[in-house]
């Protein structure tokens, strides 16, 4: 059956709207990565003082340049964020050369917002601390260029190394 031009355009628009609103299949699905991430993002501390541990976490986030956005101590939750430049010299040089060659403005990453969330909970005879990170990057045209979670193992190793040091300080008030 032949479609009229307007019907074809309507169906094309309808299918594109459907594509835009369908969430990725794996977005809410547990998989092997979920357990790996749990191990990557969680450390256990042998202490019963959850309040002091939360306080140390809050202090560490601020030491790292974050501002505290939300807290719910009874749930062991701290949410924080920081906004920084995302300008990378190499990328700027590349974008500049490309724009010279093509005659068109080529955007480069300009600012980024990093978000962190810490959740503490009783575990065995101590407390488990889990931290998660994500970031949003905007380019020089004001558009979002990256939306991503951060999963570099080094990031978490360094974070927990600093937290261990802080707890030691926290346990021994100066």
């Amino acid at each position: 059956m032949a479609l009229s031009k307007s019907t074809a355009v309507f169906l094309l628009l309808l299918s594109s709207v459907g594509c835009r609103t369908a969430i990725p299949k794996e977005a809410l699905q547990w998989n092997e990565q979920s357990m790996e991430r749990r191990h990557l993002q969680t450390r256990y501390f042998q202490t019963s003082e959850e309040g002091k541990l939360l306080s140390a976490c809050s202090g560490l986030l601020q030491d790292l340049g974050f501002s505290i956005d939300e807290t719910e101590s009874k749930l062991g939750l701290i949410v924080a964020s920081k906004q920084r430049t995302a300008v990378d010299t190499g990328q700027v040089i590349g974008a500049t050369l490309l724009s010279i060659l093509s005659g068109k403005a080529v955007p480069f990453d300009k600012t980024q917002k990093m978000r962190a969330c810490i959740v503490t909970r009783p575990f065995a005879d101590g407390i488990a601390v889990r931290v998660t990170f994500q970031r949003i990057v905007w380019n020089s045209e004001g558009k979002v260029s990256h939306l991503e979670g951060l999963f570099d193992p080094k990031l978490f190793q360094e974070f927990f190394a600093k937290l261990s040091k802080a707890i030691f300080l926290e346990a021994h008030e100066i």
Binding site: W30, E70, E72, L75, L77, V79, R115, C117, Q134, G149
Partner: peptide
């Protein structure tokens, strides 16, 4: 957190 979310708020 297992599913890759960062929490915003909790009450």
């Amino acid at each position: 957190q297992d599913l890759g979310f960062v929490l915003d708020k909790a009450d």
